[in-house]
Design a protein around this nucleic acid. Structure first.
Lengths: 119, 119
DNA sequence: CTCGGTTATATCCACAGGGACACAACGCCT
DNA sequence: AGGCGTTGTGTCCCTGTGGATATAACCGAG
């Protein structure tokens, strides 16, 4: 039952798509305080991580990630209030989908081969 | 408001992912009665269309698409009852998500730049 | 018995996306 | 002043995903 994963992407015009990758990256930055550290942890090249951040910051009214260069630890990055809000919205959206969609998802799942839900 | 599109993919184990591409293809086959016609219409190579069909048929207990070769019109394909059911479940799932998720989606959307929602 | 249009399948190849790598800029701390 | 670790940016190259293409099998219609 729990090997069913949902991936949900939002497309706003052609400007931005927000999905699992960006969400995880935001969370990683929030936890690690660093773009590169978050990228390493999720096995994403720094270039890619940085591109995603830039894309988000460009698409939203105020940036979701603030970064600083230099300093004691070389620099770092952290989520803005807006960044945390967007991430929270996305997380809650996924929860809602998992709940309200369970019937339809179950309907599809029931027709799958290999009904190893026993146990 | 309506330029927000939702793409939702379901992953069952590592066996199958069902998403917009396969759903549209199923619908196309249902309407056209042909894999190649459906593929052409949605600008998908026959190879790709056929691969998707094979993947689905292999993953589900009973095939979603039945196909025949030869005959008056060369052959054709049509959805099984199971295929129509899966497609219907997926469509309804998307509707449910759009409804129950509108609050959270709106929350994200509100923070986007270029607030051109004024008509 | 050939024609037509489709399913089914294999081979080859172009191309974009992303990774690896290199390097500059930055600023605090010792 | 120099070092450190990060952000920021460019360049090259590899890979694998899918497109293009070719061909066989199929079968009723005319």
């Amino acid at each position: 039952m729990e090997d069913t994963r949902i991936r949900l992407r939002l497309y706003f015009g052609k400007r931005l798509m927000f999905g699992p990758g960006k969400a995880d990256l935001l969370q990683g930055i929030d936890e690690d305080g660093s773009i590169s550290a978050a990228g390493r942890r999720m096995k994403m090249s720094y270039k890619r991580a940085w591109m995603l951040v830039e894309e988000m910051n460009a698409a939203f009214g105020e940036p979701l990630v603030e970064s600083t260069r230099g300093g004691p630890k070389g620099g770092g990055a952290r989520l803005t209030e807006s960044g945390r809000a967007v991430l929270a919205h996305y997380r809650r959206l996924l929860e809602t989908v998992a709940e309200t969609g369970s019937a339809e998802i179950g309907g599809i799942r029931a027709r799958l081969k290999d009904v190893n839900d026993g146990k």
